[in-house]
Nucleic acid binder design. Sequence first.
RNA 1: GGACGAUUAGCUCAGCUGGUUAGAGCGUGCGAUUCACAUUCGCAAGGUCACUGGUUCGAAUCCAGUAUCGUCCACCA
Length: 916
Amino acid sequence: MLLEKAYDPKRTEDRIYAMWEQSGAFRADAHSSKEPFTISMPPPNATGQLHLGHAVMLALQDIFIRFARMRGKEALWVPGTDHAAIATENVVIRQLKKDGMKDPRKELGREKLVALIADFVEQSRGTIRKQVRKMGASCDWSRERYTFEPALNRLVNEVFCMMHGDGLIYRGHRIVNWDPGLQTTVSDDEIAYKEETSPYYTFQYGPFQISTVRPETKFGDKYVVMHPDDERYTAFKHGDTFEAEWINGPVRATVIKDASIDMSFGTGVMTITPWHSAVDFEIAERHGLEKEQIIDEKGRLLPIAGEFAGMSIEKARPLVVEKLQSKILVVKVEENYVHNIATNSRGGGIIEPQIKLQWFIDVNKECVQWKNQTMSLKEVMHDVIHHGDIAIIPERFNRTYFHWIDNLRDWCISRQIWWGHRVPVYYCTKCAGAVSKPGEMTNDQFPMTKTFVSVQPMDRCPDCGGPVTQDEDTLDTWFSSALWTWSTLVDSKVTEDLSLSLEEMLAKSPDYQTFHPTAVMETGYDILFFWVARMILMTTYATGQIPFKTVYLHGLIRARDGRKMSKSHPETMIDPLDMIEKYGADALRLSMIVGQSPGNDARLYEEKIAGYRNFINKLWNASRFVLMQCEAAGVTPADCAMENEQWEMDALSLADRAILHATELLTEDVTKGLEEYRLSETGERLYGFTWDLFCDWYLELSKGTANTAVLVHVLRRLLTLLHPYCPFVTEELWAQVKPAEAGSLIKEEWPKMHSDWKDQEAFDQLQIVIDVITAIRKLRTEQNVEPQKAVAITIVAETQAGLLSSQSDHIKRLAKVSDLSIAVTGKQPTESASAFLPGIEMYLSLAGLIDKDKERASLQKEQEQLQRFVSGIQAKLGNEQFMSKAPAALISEQKAKLQEAEEKLRKIEERLGGLT
RNA sequence: GGACGAUUAGCUCAGCUGGUUAGAGCGUGCGAUUCACAUUCGCAAGGUCACUGGUUCGAAUCCAGUAUCGUCCACCA
């Protein structure tokens, strides 16, 4: 069957994908005796659209998993989606508001809103599934998971209870990042600082001058803080009080000395607002100072603001300044003060720090058993990277990771949104006022409540039988994502049995037993902290295992000009689905892999994708050529079985022996490259081999003298090696050339080396033939010989005459030579132009038409290059230090090169002398 | 303020543990259209490897510093 002239991915990809899926090729077996190899797919948001970030991750992981599968491992790639708590709730609420609802949370209530979001997710989840398939991802769909499914909820609750029991989870009044717009807390890592220019005010505050960009928070300020060593203020002692005229009348203020104050900044004095600033909060905690709330959760001023109460901060700010001005307390205003404001990276709302009662994970408490020691979560996280249990690629991210751990504060895990795993904690309404566990509450300004932490829903207080209420908060979405590598491997059925402990559930889950820890976690470096670090934290704690052995961090895909692709600049956006439609998934995959090194950003643009589309088409046409050769020879490709035939290497042509040798080398390089996760380099190697050696030389050389067995063998090998990179086209072509007994390529075994087929000498000899042909072509072009015109060539080659004679047909055909004479010795024919290779002289005879100027120019250029080279080597060899210190092999190599170059130079100079 | 990365051909990038006459793709110039492919083929032009020092027999590669760009972290009231 003859192939179409050009490859059409649209007629191939969906069909091939369906074939793979139906054949069960993606499915892994927990009871297999093969070595397991697992990847957990970072779950895309359930409501999302596939973007380039997903595309690159799918391409990389698919290469890893296909390679592992072909190498005979039990390869499992677990797909899934994320409920993306804040993001998803936002999307739905925004839509409801668009549809006319004023306050969806209030109007619908918790249950109805959550049900609506669940419906929405259910509907849109199918989109991403389809899109993942479009990329060719060979993941095991029978094991698809969802971060918010009941089984995972059970595990989330279980881990929460364990951690609470170990005192690693506590509830406390702490300063948190509050987003007044979204009405929820945000973790430290989700804060993005934005530069802003605002007026900067300096006020008189008693005997001091204090500065701020936020006058509206200053109502409750009654502490002035300065550095204990600040000589300007030695007159003031810690604890001194004084009276100051302030916004709403006189206040009594206290002097606090604290070493955290930067003396060189401004006046070196500041007032503090502990309720609305993390730094101030810490100072207040250190000195046991009072804290007062000034701004409410909606961002409005509280009664403490007096006449300003109820106003939004934006509205109050100028009015407060006005009032201070009227009291002549404004010392100066700097209009264009540049500072950073904290915003929520999801949604962009301005963050207003607040003291709130929240749930935290204690990262410093030493109570985790790890490697027979008791450590804190921080220490475990540090240990597994430090001791190489987990390797990060590229390694430099270790430093970033350690730095992050060093600065890590307790993780606030509660969120005041409804879409997510609910905090599994219950409060007795009757036992209110009683203290449940000592140390559970950290701030005794607030009343205590009897608290129960429970995996199973509770409705009665076990102590008094009174009614209980559940905690209103949900958990940070990363809490459940942090369990992903193993929670997805726990048998869903097992989680329904509430009598089982976590340990028992793990023991009863064959998938977990077989496939965890996973082999490699592949994700973008931008979520190293959010996710990778937290998986390490939670998984080591909960299961006693590391979640993965290798972390492969890919870079960001940027627009052609290096900018981040963003919705605000639609012209920079590349939609992977459009690109698949236009160029095919294989081309898109290659364009994102080759030229992209781990941890580094890479630019993508359409021409690049088109370039790889061309490559795919090249491969297609090479296969088409091989099939045509088989047809012409009356051979069925399926019957070709190089491996089973006893080939006498000597019976093969030079080109055959050389390509077999090169194919073995290629196989070695690709295998090693993929083992070492060097995907870009390996992709380039395959590209170059296919196009330059196989197509441009071997196929050309085989025209007229095709050895179909070798052709088919090399093509098969090439398809196999390329399959992880471009699975669709290779699978499609495989069907045409595969051995009769073979199945689909996805299940094919990775090639084994055949050292018998190595023949370095043949390869080197072919290289000489290639060089001769190229040199003749160059001579032709230089001498303006018309492409169709056949020429006469004389070759004088002392040692290689035999080789070149044996290949004279190839030289004649590929260099368009009609009259080729090859001799061991001889003189330059008259009326000819010359070119030289080591030990080989080539003369193009062209009676009366030789352009001597061009020949001279060409030879002179080469002469110059050679002279530079020769003098470079001579200097080296004349250097005693070099001769005594350089390795012997290098010296003899240099000597040989020198001799070769000198000889060639002599020939060129001889000829140049004859030209003048 | 701290850390990390980048700087190699017009553009986008390779170049692993120091020894190459520094590579690729795209683009450019010239030429080619029966016989796998114009999504093609042939030939060519194009680089003092950001700069300054150092280590070394030898540096694009290792070290130090400088400059420019980028990213992350911290955040100053």
